[in-house]
Design a protein around this nucleic acid. Structure first.
Lengths: 142, 142
DNA sequence: ATGAGAATAAGAATCATTCTTGCTTTTGAT
DNA sequence: ATCAAAAGCAAGAATGATTCTTATTCTCAT
């Protein structure tokens, strides 16, 4: 019997179309890369990685693919300070914890019952459409 | 008797030194501008405004002043998406509400007892050094 | 098969920000 | 007050992420 030690020993099959977006070869590889390596790569990092399978892809195309995926709600774009944008396939509502030591960005889920309007003094009449929470700190392994 | 209708009819006097930073004329004007108009201007907006009083100031100097003020903890730099950095003289811990209609950025204070660690699933051992909360939405005046 | 519209690659352009350089001001001894 | 050293400044060049442009190549419905 065959056992898999990695969760990604086989590349996931990406459908022809997602959320109304035609998944071209380039878009597939960009998206596959994001869901396989669930980190938060920059466009340039995706570009580097995807060149294994598509040696002729251009950085502009990676940007185009990422933009198309973001606009169709298939992935999210996240920005930290003034750094390059990063991309994230996690569509659940979540924040980010930025480990200052390792540089690793962890997704942080909101606990059940989380309601930000209870916690901050919003301007009167304010309706929240979008929440962005970024934390920075360290992870003490002790 | 003289009555003041504006809270800023007189420009505040800026000390010679703040938090160990020598307040040169340029730094004074940049800082004065931020505390007078308590909005969240970009470097370029500060540059435009400050030219009234210092017609020869350069944009690079505005950037230098803002950087010096930020590094000495006198003002804060805030970034929204990939837009130009904005600067904020409010040193209390607070978040921002971005009105999608007017573009106005409101400071939002945290309610008493606010503790984000209670609300999100942090990675084990995580210690939060810095919190950044940005909300986007509308303000319904009705 | 074919023509219109979509997607791509390559490189130019943009724009906020940072860097460099030469000059001016301030500071802190003397 | 004097003067060297340090700090600050203005102007413009350089940088770097992202977007735009253009010419070429696909895709898909007819």
């Amino acid at each position: 019997m065959i056992s898999h030690t990695s969760t990604h020993s086989v590349s996931p099959v990406i459908p022809e179309e997602i959320a109304g977006l035609r998944m071209t070869r380039q878009r597939q590889e960009v998206y596959r890369n994001l869901i396989e390596q669930r980190d938060h790569p920059t466009a340039n990092e995706v570009y580097m990685r995807v060149k294994d399978r598509l040696p002729n892809i251009s950085l502009a195309t990676v940007y185009n693919c990422l933009e198309a995926l973001v606009e169709h709600g298939i992935i999210r774009q996240v920005n930290f300070e003034r750094e390059s944008s990063r991309y994230c396939p996690n569509l659940t509502e979540h924040g980010h914890f930025h480990d200052a030591v390792t540089g690793i960005i962890h997704d942080v889920d909101f606990k059940p019952g989380f309601n930000l309007a209870d916690l901050v003094e919003l301007p009167p009449g304010a309706v929240i459409d979008d929440i962005e929470i970024t934390l920075r700190g360290k992870v003490t392994s002790a």
